[in-house]
Design a binder for these strands. Structure first.
Lengths: 193, 193
DNA sequence: GATCATCATGAACCACGGTTCATTTTTTGG
DNA sequence: CCAAAAAATGAACCGTGGTTCATGATGATC
């Protein structure tokens, strides 16, 4: 019923080439690359792209989802290290540092963060990332290293707005500001947080 | 030499209408509104836009500069209140709250913040805003309410990334996070900040 | 290796948006 | 009022970029 026939060999080969090329091009030039350029990078004609992906949006979405998976892997790895005795706060800062770098460098990831908190697409990878992050957050909070009512949504909110097109120094500074805030350490802060 | 002839009456009238319409349209729909729409809103033909502004970029820049001036006014007003005895920290949070709101609501201001720290255009209004902010920052730092090495560039950096297209609650939360950071109040933070 | 479904090709199509310019209208100054 | 200059008009131009489709090639099956 769902099985018409086995897909042709060159079809699967091309599909891989397309995904690879799309990944590279979207990473390098953002989601606004032309279909022509992706096709050229894949060594394939434009029409072939449309055979595999009905629309450009679908192709880009496929690429973006790959990076969501990658971020989820990263978060889970950090989680595992915490389970092995690593300090949760260090893993969180490490994860956020890498994420900041990715968002700044990789235009596809930038696009991914925009959708992270908000889209109704049920993505397994997004759930994985959320679960891992939750664990990390709770561990760091138990250690007293992270403010008690910081949530996963907060992390998404902040990193949906991480800086792009800025020099590395600015990225590092941004992360520091976000981690420690504008108020001095000693001051007992506002009521909300 | 620089005086050819007095400009025609309808010309100045149209110029005003164009700037007003452009302000409204860019505010409402962002810098990506079509020239057609701006022209329609102004009750004028497209060609007229190009008589007054050689390119779309110039028109949008004019609008954006208006908002930079507005932000500068706001900062200076806050500054004046501090001079009259208001607490600097309260004025800073007030200013930043209003700015967050503007960035989220007003697409033109969003565009403005992107250029604030980075463009080589020598704008008097930008200098005004910078000077006022510097004063505010130093006052708050003297009171011990603001971390000692926060600079104007930091504020620009953060607000270049203020959230757009998010519900008001998210905007408020974002500001709280930025003000107080992710680490708990008691903890003596990282070396850098 | 013949047949056929599947797939690839790429020129052409189309919508969109910034820009131009020949023509017409309006204002100005005498 | 009447030219002449200045300004307004808007249809047309043009580049860009996503999408389609008639045609030709290729892999799978018997």
């Amino acid at each position: 019923m769902t099985e018409g026939r086995a897909p042709r060999a060159d079809a699967v080969r091309n599909r891989k080439k397309i995904l690879t090329a799309a990944r590279e091009q979207v990473t390098a030039h953002g989601p606004d690359v032309g279909m022509d350029e992706i096709a050229a990078a894949a060594g394939v004609a434009v029409g072939t792209l449309y055979r595999h992906f009905p629309t450009k949006t679908d192709l880009v979405a496929a690429v973006v989802e790959e990076f969501v998976a990658q971020v989820a892997d990263d978060a889970e790895a950090a989680c595992a290290r915490v389970a092995s005795g690593a300090r949760a706060w260090d893993e969180i800062t490490g994860f956020l540092t890498r994420l900041t770098e990715e968002v700044a460098t990789n235009h596809a990831v930038k696009a991914a963060t925009q959708t992270l908190g908000a889209v109704p697409d049920d993505k397994a990878d997004e759930d994985r990332a959320g679960a891992a992050l939750t664990t990390l957050i709770q561990a760091a909070q138990s250690d007293g290293d992270l403010h008690p009512d910081v949530s996963v949504a907060d992390i998404y909110l902040l990193f949906a707005t991480a800086p792009t097109e800025r020099p590395p120094a600015a990225r590092a500074r941004w992360l520091t500001l976000v981690l420690f805030g504008l108020t001095p350490r000693g001051r007992t802060g506002g009521a909300a947080l």
